[in-house]
Amino acid sequence: MKDKIDDLEKNMFPSDGTGLKPYEWMVRPTAQTQWIDDKGLFLWLAFFSSEIGAGLYFMSLFHEYRPGIILGWLITLILGGTIHVLYLGNPFRAWRMIMKPNTSELSRGVWIIGIFALLGFFQMTSQGGFNIVFNFIMGILCLLIISHGFVTMNVIRALPAWSSTMVLPLSLISGIWVGSQLLQMMFVMGGSGVLASGMEVWAKVFFLIYLICVLLYVWGTYHADKIAKESIVIQLKGKLSQIFYIGVGGVGLVIPALLILIMWEGNINGFLLFLRLIAVLVGDLALRYTIMKSAVYKPLF
């Protein structure tokens, strides 16, 4: 006899990750899945790793803090690089991605990372590495890497939520914010309590900018385009709303805000800083996840 009623849907319209039935594909706004589902998750983690590594490097430049740039360099290249290769699946072919820096953002990214790797190596190994020119160049490279993931997404016109103008400022500040938190934690762990509490001022500033940018992203993307709006609706009201409210809002914004308030007077606490770092990392991952996952294509007619 006919299979169980619960299997009806599974039998006829098995899920393809877009949340749509097959007959709704590109007839209704259709989610991109390549860069977030299955192996696409690696790309999410890869973008995140490169970004936090570069963020840490960037913040370390201001303090000319060598362990920071070394760790940042390693995170960006080793962690980010490995995960990128995991995504691509074939390390022996990846070198080809340098071929077209004139048009493709991915090629540009590979070039930038390559230059960053080379110059960063010089900076961390040479004695006079921290001079203003070198710092400036490395700072620019870091900012380019921080924004690389989002820029790669931003140039994709097919996904209006990603090509929204509010994505870039958000990506920059999120990299800096996460990087600064990592650095602050390193200071604590390295016993530089003074440096760490000195950074708390910046934490307030960066957090505030981050908060504003998240709000601007939501507001701006919502009003940018009919399809971009769809993505925000998915984040706020659709199937991603739990991740958005708990991950981005609760963990990424509310908890750091509370911890900032607790430590408002500058009386920093290593454990609370650690908690905040974890919250910031989780919040940023959640934000990236919802942005990547909620991107939808415009129906074809």
Binding site: Q34, W35, Y87, A94, E105
Partner: peptide, 16 residues
């Protein structure tokens, strides 16, 4: 022979 499987094209195609 040149494709490295980055899928940037796949995501970029407005027509999927």
């Amino acid at each position: 022979k040149k494709c490295v499987g980055c899928r940037a094209c796949l995501v970029s195609c407005p027509y999927q």
